[in-house]
């Protein structure tokens, strides 16, 4: 398990053309806490997460500094930032089995006790079993229910051993009954791994349930809220 870390944003905003999507943001996300970012659609919530994990595309330009554990990561390519992200859709790779999806993101450390081929597979199976998905290793992701797929997506992200976790409205597409349980599942995992976690949502219930600090993205034209 990776050691507890802190995610820090300094003066961060996203520019498109000469315009900022939102007022520059200063934020410290501490380990094991879930910080919620609220804002209406179009306010740049998803772009903020893309900026943090390094996948900002098209005409969008990043601004400000992102530090993970005190180290700037803004210049690194996404795959070397150690920032995991969960999207609205599970984005399980359709050509890989459930287990292969998990193995895809797991770090390789050949020659060590935990990084060999057999150990990685066992690790994936254990993770599935702990998520009530025992025996799903060889299943085709297309045959899983929405809730099962969502859980596999979480496992895939966590098994990649990120040092921070971003949640891009991952609960919005699930129905109400599933939603509460899945939210708890994600939050428990994030907290037990002491991950600094940033949740983006426009649903108050998500924010309440996260229980951490809450920030509202301010439009660039208006003043930022305290």
């Amino acid at each position: 398990m990776s050691p507890a870390a802190t995610l820090v944003l300094q003066d961060v905003s996203v520019r498109v053309g000469g315009r900022r999507l939102f007022q520059p943001l200063d934020l410290t996300v501490t380990a094991g806490r879930i910080t919620t970012i609220m804002g209406p659609s179009g306010s740049g919530k998803s772009s903020l997460l893309a900026l943090i994990c390094g996948t900002l595309a098209g005409p969008l330009r990043p601004e400000g500094r992102v530090l993970l554990d005190g180290v700037p990561i803004g210049h690194l390519p996404p795959e070397r930032r150690g920032v995991g992200i969960l999207f609205q859709d599970d984005l399980l790779f359709p050509h890989l089995s459930v287990g292969e999806n998990l193995l895809f993101g797991m770090p390789r450390r050949p020659g060590t006790a935990t990084g060999g081929r057999a150990a990685r597979r066992q690790n994936a199976r254990n993770a599935l079993a702990n998520a009530d998905l025992a025996g799903f290793f060889d299943r085709d992701p297309a045959t899983l229910s929405g809730g099962q797929r969502a859980r596999v997506a979480v496992l895939r992200t966590l098994l990649a051993e990120p040092r921070a976790l971003l949640l891009d409205e991952p609960f919005s597409k699930l129905d109400m009954e599933l939603r509460g349980r899945f939210r708890r599942f994600v939050f428990d995992h994030a907290e037990s791994r002491r991950l600094p976690t940033l949740l983006v949502t426009h649903d108050m219930a998500d924010a309440d349930s996260a229980g951490g600090p809450m920030v509202t993205l301010a439009c660039a034209e208006t003043k930022a809220e305290p």
Binding site: A50, C53, G54, T55, A57, P77, P78, E79, R80, R81, G82, V83, G84, I85, F87, D89, L91, F93, F104, G105, P107, R156, T157, A160, E161, P162
Partner: peptide, 22 residues
């Protein structure tokens, strides 16, 4: 869907591997 490639990158996989394996 470009997010597949992004999801793969955010799992710590290099772009070349994303090309070949995703």
């Amino acid at each position: 869907d470009r997010r597949y490639a992004r999801a793969a990158l955010c799992l710590g996989v290099r772009p070349r591997t994303v090309f070949w394996r995703v």
